[in-house]
Simulated assay, not measured.
Amino acid sequence: MNDHHDVHVGLHSEQGALPGEHPGRARNPVIKVADLAWLEFEKPDLRKAETFAHAFGFATAARSADELWLRGTDSGAPCVLIRRGPQSSFLGPAFRATEAADLSRLADRTGSRVTPLPESLGGLVVDLADPNGLRVRVTAGMEVLGALPAQQPHTFNFGHSTARTNSTQRPPREPTRVQRLGHVVFQTTRYRQTLDWYLEHLGLIVSDFLYHPGHRERGPAMSFIRCDQGSIPTDHHTLALMLGPSNRYVHSAYQVADLDALAAGGEYLREQGYQRSWGIGRHIQGSQIFDYWRDPDGFIVEHFSDGDLFDNTLEPGWAPMSASGLAQWGPPATKDFLGIAPGREALRELRAMACALREDNEFDLGRLRGMMKVARS
């Protein structure tokens, strides 16, 4: 198959699906979730986690000896719930149902139960497990936190369009203010099974598929997936899934006001001694301006702004995967971001490769060669 394709040329759906390829949506999903609600983590040092969170741009919604809730300036639920635990781990995502009746429908179809959330959160939840064993929560009726004062976007002079006169542009070097949770990315050894599970149970739909160069006939190896709210546009991706040798969290992303908020906030993080993983740049799939950081527990978190919004009429795009194709502009993707920098994380992935190749899953020698080709591209 001819894979001569410049990932930096063209638009979202320049390459649509070929006959017989994955349609990118389930024909009759159980429910259609409205959005991500929050992410849950376990960490041993809540004080250290909160210090980084404030530098990154979160506000504290609630704090106890054993729990830390982090929020953005938008109204709604907290973005991140952290529980004290013996080691750092990602516990799973929570999605917000469109209506409370969806929980009963989901529970009936999956043999689960609708149970109350803690009184401090309010509302109801159905707890599921995806094909990798990751806990996935679907919620409704939670307490709504009121909006906080937001960081206002700057007024820009674009070329000959001058909206700002007799005033200067002086973004302060201080923590940006996170507005909301945008998306989360997982790696899975059972990519196709996991993809179909999220489409069928939660009604998500694919915005873009990526495949290993030269191996399109084997199907996609990554997908960017959005919520289906009909004619109401939603983020290009709320969830992204990628095939790999282990089942793990890759990163999560949080919206900020604009490029200046992202860049000045990044300078503040750098001055506080935190590690930039990759950035600043602009993605291709999703178009977001991005900046990636590692928190003290090693998790990658992203500031983003100016992302694409699609309604449910847009069909999935298809493109070959490459490291250079992760960005329209910006520095090359770093070894740290790609997970191949020498260190504990790379060693864990090497061990995972050896295990995955001996197990019954989708990660085989052909997929390994494809992944290595992507990392070198």
Rank of each mutant, 00 (worst) to 15 (best):
M1Y: 00
M1I: 05
N2C: 03
H4N: 11
V9K: 10
G10Q: 07
G10C: 06
L11Y: 12
L11V: 11
H12S: 01
V30L: 15
D35R: 00
E40S: 14
P44A: 03
K48S: 12
A49C: 10
H54I: 13
T60C: 15
R63P: 08
R63L: 11
E67M: 12
L70Q: 01
T73R: 01
D74G: 04
P78S: 04
L81Y: 13
I82Y: 03
L91R: 13
G92W: 03
P93W: 02
T98H: 06
E99T: 15
A101S: 14
D102R: 05
S104V: 06
A107Q: 03
T115E: 15
T115N: 10
T115L: 14
P116H: 00
L117V: 02
G123C: 01
G123N: 06
P131C: 01
A140H: 05
G141S: 05
E143W: 10
V144P: 08
L145N: 01
A150G: 09
A150I: 14
Q151S: 13
Q152S: 14
N157F: 14
F158E: 15
H160W: 10
S161P: 05
S161E: 14
A163M: 13
N166W: 12
T168Q: 14
P171S: 03
R173G: 02
T176H: 02
T176W: 07
R180H: 09
R180T: 11
L181C: 09
G182I: 07
H183N: 02
V185M: 01
F186H: 04
R192S: 10
T194D: 07
W197G: 00
Y198N: 04
L199G: 07
L199W: 05
L202D: 11
L204Q: 00
V206D: 04
R216F: 02
P220H: 02
A221T: 14
R226T: 06
I232E: 12
D235L: 12
H237Y: 05
T238F: 04
H251Y: 08
Y254N: 07
D258F: 01
D260R: 00
A261P: 00
E271Y: 03
Q272R: 14
W278Q: 00
G279D: 01
D291S: 10
D291N: 11
D295H: 15
P296R: 06
D297N: 11
D308E: 15
F310V: 09
L314W: 14
P316N: 00
W318L: 04
A319D: 08
P320E: 04
P320Y: 04
S322V: 01
L326P: 03
D336Q: 11
F337N: 05
F337E: 02
G339C: 13
G339Q: 11
E345M: 15
E345V: 13
A346E: 07
R348A: 10
M353Q: 12
A354T: 10
E359K: 03
D364T: 03
L365S: 10
L368T: 01
G370N: 06
G370L: 02
M371A: 15
